[in-house]
Simulated assay, not measured.
Amino acid sequence: MLDSHVRRLIDKPLTSVASAIDRPWISPDRLTIAGLVLGLASALAAALTLWWLALLLWLASRILDGLDGSLARLRRSREDAGAGGSSEAGGFLDIVSDFVVYGATVFGVAVGASVAFDAPWWPFALVLLTYYVNGSAFLAFSSTAERTGRRIDDGRSLSFLGRIAEGTETIIVHSLWLVVPFLAWQIAVVWGVFVAVSAVQRIVVGYRSLR
């Protein structure tokens, strides 16, 4: 819901940073992998109830997740493929890394909240279920749209069906979990319902778009 607005706000700053770090030994794929490592470290820190460390690692991971695409587009605009420009492999790596980090973070917060605050597990299981349904709808639509020539080109590697729960909302909610972990399971209940509604929207809109 907020992605398009936020992307317009952060596009120039991210491009400026990407220009500043544009070195032969820094590639979009390496930034993606660094973001993945930091995201997994954030999940581990959350599981150990190191909430503020987890928050810093999470935000750093998401910044790198934005920078990898900015650097890829910068190099593509110069047609400098030899310097590690945008590629199908890079887009694949990016989306897989996002899914791994999102799932790991939910699991890490669930472990930490259950240990520190005796939080129930089912709200986090609900979030993982809705993530699974969303991911299935998103990837199935992207694959079918690509094959049938109905690709949605918004600058991202895959055709993305934007709905009320997108990347920006996910970053905000995961951050809230780490800022107020004693309310993590209650936030997870609300977020799970929110993402479930988004999943239904994606399924309906995706089906209608492909008919």
Rank of each mutant, 00 (worst) to 15 (best):
L31N: 08
L31P: 07
L31T: 08
I33F: 05
A34M: 11
A34N: 10
G35T: 03
V37K: 03
L38E: 01
G39H: 01
G39K: 02
A41I: 02
S42A: 09
A43Q: 03
A43F: 00
L44N: 03
A45V: 01
A46Q: 12
A46G: 12
A47D: 09
A47G: 15
A47P: 05
L48S: 15
L48C: 14
T49F: 11
L50A: 12
L50H: 12
L50I: 10
L53C: 10
A54L: 06
A54F: 00
L55F: 11
L55Q: 07
L56Q: 15
W58L: 01
L59D: 12
L59A: 06
S61I: 07
I63L: 15
L64F: 03
D65Y: 11
D65C: 13
D65F: 13
D65R: 11
L67E: 09
L67I: 06
G69W: 03
G69I: 04
S70H: 03
S70M: 06
S70V: 06
L74A: 15
R76S: 15
S77T: 13
E79T: 08
D80H: 09
A81S: 08
A81D: 14
A81M: 09
G82M: 14
G82K: 11
G82Q: 14
A83S: 15
G84E: 00
G85V: 02
G85L: 02
S86H: 05
G90R: 00
G90T: 04
G91E: 09
F92S: 13
F92Y: 07
F92D: 11
V96I: 09
S97K: 03
D98P: 07
Y102T: 07
G103A: 14
G103W: 10
G103Q: 12
A104N: 00
A104E: 01
T105G: 15
T105V: 13
V106Y: 06
V106H: 03
V106Q: 07
G108T: 04
A110C: 02
A110W: 01
V111R: 07
G112I: 03
G112F: 02
G112S: 05
G112D: 02
A113K: 03
S114T: 08
S114L: 05
F117R: 07
D118I: 14
D118T: 14
